[in-house]
Measured scan of single mutants.
Amino acid sequence: NQASVVANQLIPINTALTLVMMRSEVVTPVGIPAEDIPRLVSMQVSRAVPLGTTLMPDMVKGYA
């Protein structure tokens, strides 16, 4: 089972991601792979992401 990136806190719209905002977790459906966490740092979210939400490619500007 592949771990995905999950929000560790509420991430407001247009916030630049930092390591403390993200954790890896095995979830369904699968989201952005956990190994991409270093690449996500400083990228902005395109919408508010609630705590515990799996990050999907369309939620991060410039990821897809």
Rank of each mutant, 00 (worst) to 15 (best):
I32D: 00
L10R: 07
G62S: 09
V49E: 02
V27W: 03
E25W: 04
L51T: 12
N1D: 15
S42R: 06
V49Y: 02
S24N: 08
L40D: 00
P57H: 13
T54Q: 03
Q2T: 12
V41M: 05
M56H: 10
M59R: 02
G31C: 03
V49W: 02
T18V: 07
P12A: 11
R39V: 10
E25M: 06
R47D: 10
D36N: 15
P38S: 11
P33Q: 08
M21A: 06
P50M: 14
A48R: 09
M21D: 07
V60F: 04
E25T: 06
M21R: 03
M56Y: 12
L55Y: 02
E25D: 14
I32M: 03
V5L: 03
M59S: 09
L40G: 00
I13E: 14
I13G: 12
M59D: 15
P29L: 07
A48L: 15
E35I: 09
D36M: 12
I11G: 01
A48F: 08
V41A: 07
V60A: 01
L40I: 05
M43L: 12
A16R: 06
N8L: 05
P50L: 13
I11M: 04
P33E: 04
E25F: 04
I37P: 00
V26I: 08
S42C: 14
V27S: 05
A3M: 10
A16N: 12
P50W: 05
G52P: 02
V26E: 15
A16E: 10
L17T: 00
V30S: 14
T53C: 08
L55P: 01
E25Q: 06
P50H: 14
E25I: 06
N8S: 15
A16S: 11
G31E: 01
I11A: 00
L17D: 02
T54D: 00
V20P: 12
V27K: 10
A3V: 06
V6S: 02
T18D: 08
T28Y: 13
S42Y: 10
L17I: 14
L55I: 15
M59F: 08
V45K: 00
T54E: 02
Q2Y: 14
Q44C: 15
A3H: 14
V6K: 04
S24A: 13
I11Y: 00
D58E: 09
P50Q: 14
V45T: 13
T54Y: 02
S24L: 06
G62Q: 12
P33V: 13
L19H: 15
V26C: 07
Y63E: 03
I11L: 14
S46L: 13
Q44G: 04
R39I: 13
V49S: 02
P29W: 04
L40T: 00
N1V: 15
A16Y: 06
S46I: 15
M43T: 05
V27F: 03
K61E: 09
L10D: 14
M22E: 02
V45G: 01
T18R: 05
T54N: 02
E35H: 12
P38A: 11
A64V: 14
A3P: 06
M59C: 04
S24H: 09
I37Q: 08
R23S: 12
L55W: 00
T53Q: 14
P33Y: 12
I37F: 03
D36C: 05
G52N: 11
A3I: 09
V60S: 01
D58H: 06
P57L: 04
S42T: 10
M21F: 04
V30A: 09
